[in-house]
């Protein structure tokens, strides 16, 4: 698909996360655009609540694996409903109904305290399915991994952890983060060497960008910004970046054609030479940033 792919030196390991506070700013567009530019790289869709990378990258899925979280199970022959497990559960996942203990599995964080504190060894841990891990390849040799959270399962983090476990050594790994600034986003960002924040030229985009910047500063992850739906006349974001000495990595214009291409599942980089060059530039800039800031991070 590409004439010139950027060659990454063997043995060079790099984890780039693509994040944004606001949803729909173009994380997946940037992530998949980037993936197409780098030779021998892998893509991880960590937005397990709403994974969409597969729509743009269209990988052939070679392997699916069910993912489980441990939840307690009670052996009623041994349990006398003393309620010790209920007392130590911070998440209200265990309810004492006098003649039995009811387990509300959705609430369980798998901390294991209930099992540890049961005086009668009546608790064991069993597996509850929380989603699926899919592994495959895109036509041009990109390793593709995503997680699909089971609908109704409230906590995405355990599945995100499983996706990130598949990060490959010695290559460039691109992590497509879920939106927001809370646990799922942090789980992804903190596991990366560099984070690309994608925002858009609107007050909403700016407002949410500021919050994401705070998170990354607290996590001490180096980062830069891509402005999507870029509008020259809207200066607020560029001004903010300048005032705070934050790198502007790339801008993507606001164009109905890009929106149309995305809607039918196309990666902008594929059909436009100019965009493609921009993604190559983007990757080069990231590499240079990681090299210069790398010493502080490690």
């Amino acid at each position: 698909m590409w004439d010139t792919l950027i060659n990454v030196e063997r043995g060079q390991e790099l984890v780039i996360s693509i994040a944004s506070g606001k949803g729909g700013t173009g994380k997946t567009t940037v992530a998949t655009g980037l993936v197409q530019t780098i030779e021998n790289c892998s893509y991880f869709d960590c937005d397990v609540e709403e994974p969409n990378g597969h729509i743009l990258l269209q990988p052939s899925i070679e392997q699916t694996e069910k993912i489980y979280k441990p939840v307690p199970a009670i052996n009623s022959d041994l349990c006398n409903c003393c309620g010790k497990c209920v007392d130590v559960c911070e998440f209200n996942a265990l309810i004492n109904i006098k003649f039995d203990i009811v387990i509300i599995e959705e609430m369980c964080h798998s901390c294991g305290a209930c099992q540890h504190y049961c005086p009668h060894e009546a608790l064991s841990m069993r597996r509850k399915e929380i989603g699926e891990l899919r592994k495959g390849n895109t036509g041009n040799g990109v390793l593709f991994v995503d997680g699909v959270l089971k609908i109704g399962e409230p906590s995405a983090v355990p599945l995100i952890k499983k996706v990130i476990e598949r990060v490959k050594p010695d290559v460039v790994n691109v992590l497509d983060s879920p939106p927001g600034t809370s646990c799922p986003m942090i789980e992804v960002a903190k596991n990366s060497d560099y984070c690309v924040l994608v925002t858009e030229s609107t007050p909403y985009g700016l407002h949410d960008l500021v919050q994401s910047v705070d998170v990354l500063k607290a996590l001490r992850i180096p980062f830069g910004v891509v402005i999507n739906k870029f509008e020259d006349a809207f200066k607020d974001i560029v001004d903010y970046l300048e005032a705070n000495d934050i790198d502007l990595l790339m801008t993507i214009p606001f164009d109905r054609k890009i929106a149309e291409a995305y809607s039918s599942g196309k990666i902008p980089a594929i059909f436009n030479n100019e965009e493609r060059n921009k993604f190559e530039e983007l990757f080069k800039r990231i590499c240079s940033k990681v090299k210069t800031t790398g010493a502080e991070v490690v």
Partner: peptide, 10 residues
């Protein structure tokens, strides 16, 4: 904040 319903049932 979470699980108030089942806890009230308890």
């Amino acid at each position: 904040q979470g699980g108030a319903g089942p806890k009230a049932a308890e």
